[in-house]
Design a protein around this nucleic acid. Structure first.
Ligand SMILES: [Zn+2]
Ligand SMILES: [Zn+2]
Ligand SMILES: [Zn+2]
Ligand SMILES: [Zn+2]
Lengths: 132, 132
DNA sequence: ATAACGTCTGTTATAATATAACATATTTGA
DNA sequence: TCAAATATGTTATATTATAACAGACGTTAT
């Protein structure tokens, strides 16, 4: 069994940075931010990121190769993720909409494939950027 | 206005390769495949890919950094894409499901954001792989 | 205890993906 | 026909991600 709760030193450092950030962070930007804490190599970041994703603490925004902290307490296992992404300011917001999530979790492919997981990314211009 | 129909030489070469492929292709694998046709540099591939995506001829599978030909005639502008992806054999299948597409196109964020585009990627084990 | 295991760490090197920048050529349309 | 837009070729470089090896640390079985 995987230890679900306790984070290792590096995992905690990486998670802290991501949780403090206002938007999605890239792996190398995380790296530069933690070099003062003794983490020197990309591997250390990517290993922590992988574990954190596995625990559902963070998610990867695939279209941006960037990482955000999970804000919705009910996605422990990162198997149903949805995001809204502003194409202007790059803001990313995790969507937690029970109906949407149920609809997609229940969706199954004609060709007999049973889905275990999905990731949905919506793009548009956010309210704030529309004003400018 | 953009020329919607005619493809340039390089665009056609790249599209041909992607259309012939049985699964998603990576940019550098395309590159290696077309070096005999005189295309030598990644830029040439990425430029063609960008245009083809813009035309809706191909789609990018974000979770795989790979490209597939569009099979459904109704997504000219790549603004509503959905895929099913086998985590075992890497097979990718474009989902064209009118209900799903309508449902998602009509979905709007609470925070007042109007979406212009979405990409949805489902993951699971395909029928074929389940047998093994 | 101590060996075996799983997990985490550190480190160096390298692979894979993608873009910048500059020079030219070709096509298109007023 | 000439300007604008689009496409090409090329070299260099940036960005993202993994491989491979060695050692440390805690848990648990014998
Ligand atoms: Zn989440
Ligand atoms: Zn915005
Ligand atoms: Zn399509
Ligand atoms: Zn499969």
């Amino acid at each position: 069994m995987a230890r679900a709760q306790t984070l290792s030193r590096n995992q905690q450092i990486v998670l802290d940075i991501i949780e403090k950030a206002k938007g999605p962070l890239k792996a190398y930007s995380i790296l530069f931010n933690v070099q003062k804490k003794g983490i020197k190599a990309p591997q250390q970041i990517y290993r922590a990121l992988d574990k954190l994703i596995g625990m559902g603490k963070i998610h990867k925004i695939e279209s941006k190769n960037a990482f955000v902290a999970c804000r919705s307490s009910d996605c422990e296992i990162s198997k149903a993720t949805a995001f809204s992404i502003c194409e202007s300011c790059e803001m990313v917001d995790e969507i937690s909409d029970t109906k949407l999530s149920k609809y997609l979790s229940g969706f199954n492919h004609k060709k007999g494939m049973k889905f275990k997981r999905f990731n949905l990314e919506f793009f548009g211009i956010c309210k704030k950027c529309k004003k400018d």
